[in-house]
């Protein structure tokens, strides 16, 4: 055990010293990712072909995603694109994420922010859904004192719930407010006192199924959007993406120039939030 500890510690120190070039590699050594087999993937829906041969965008993105899954994990780079011109502020993605990830009261991985500018009658309003940016240079990872937050080989910033001590340093460090503290509320607290049936089900957490209850993680931990790893790995799109009422959310492999996200990203009207901080987000916005 001490020997292990030392090894790990020194490797991290080393990783820290040679950062940033070697940073991601250094971390993966510690946290293996799950492997995928093609035959376990969710079938792609069969929708009539478009008149110009085009596909339903969900089909197209699922194909992109499943193609990416055939590559080794370190060659994938998941990214999201949200077309703010199309977002109607319906909050479908927000609640779809809440139910998908069985989030407790007060936690939303993808709130839809509303910003209003101007004075009557020259007023404008914009809706900005805000998942985790899955930063390439994530400030949340650096501050975590126990290595509970780490960046996977595919670029998703993950949290090891069993390591996390709940110090909330990462919450203060995330410039996007993308991290939440799970203080331990249940919907039953606000409605009848008893846990609601869907709160008793295990929820998918970074490849594990966990039942959320007092005294066990993720209560007391930091939590955040994880790009629905559990869905991606089944060959499905993240819940917010499939549910997006305005068809404003796109998802796929940024390393794949053929993917729909990559294609859309080539447009000039792409931006990212707080670009100046150098966090290098993998969530892009079309404006």
């Amino acid at each position: 055990m001490p020997q292990n500890l030392l090894n790990k510690f020194s490797s991290d120190v080393f990783a820290g010293l040679v950062a940033p070039a070697l940073k991601p590699g250094g971390l993966e050594a510690v946290h293996p990712a799950f492997s995928i087999q093609g035959d376990e993937l969710t079938p792609i829906p069969d929708i009539p072909e478009g008149i110009n041969g085009e596909k339903h965008y969900i089909q197209r993105m699922m194909e992109d995603l499943q193609r990416a899954l055939q590559k080794p994990i370190e060659q994938r780079k998941w990214g999201m694109l949200i077309d703010l011109r199309k977002c109607t502020g319906c909050n479908g993605c927000n609640i779809a994420c809440v139910t998908e990830n069985k989030l407790p009261p007060g936690i939303s991985y993808r709130p839809v922010m509303t910003e209003t500018h101007g004075t009557f009658p020259n007023v404008s309003r914009r809706f900005t859904p805000r998942p985790c940016m899955q930063c390439e240079e994530p400030p949340c990872v650096d501050v975590c004192p126990v290595n509970a937050t780490w960046k996977r080989a595919d670029g998703i910033v993950a949290i090891d719930y069993d390591k996390c001590i709940g110090c909330r340093y990462c919450i203060t460090a995330c410039p996007y407010a993308a991290r939440s503290f799970d203080a331990g509320y249940f919907y039953g607290d606000f409605n009848g006192g008893e846990r609601q049936p869907y709160e008793l089900l295990p929820s998918p957490e970074y490849g594990e199924e966990r039942v959320r209850e007092e005294g066990s993680s993720p209560i007391g931990n930091a939590r955040k959007c994880n790009f629905c790893i559990h869905r991606i790995e089944r060959g499905e799109l993240p819940a917010c993406t499939v549910s997006c009422f305005g068809h404003a959310t796109y998802f796929g492999d940024l390393n794949d120039p053929q993917s729909l996200v990559s294609e859309l990203l080539s447009q000039p009207n792409v931006m990212r939030l707080k670009e100046e901080l150098g966090t290098n987000p993998k969530v892009y916005y079309l404006v």
Partner: peptide, 27 residues
């Protein structure tokens, strides 16, 4: 600060799994 931790019982993770890149870890 110990009582402030979300999961106070995991205090030892600070020693077992210190991240040298974190000021808090070093502290």
């Amino acid at each position: 600060v110990w009582l402030d931790l979300g999961r106070s019982e995991r205090i030892f993770n600070l020693f077992l799994s210190t991240s040298p890149r974190s000021v808090m870890g070093l502290m």
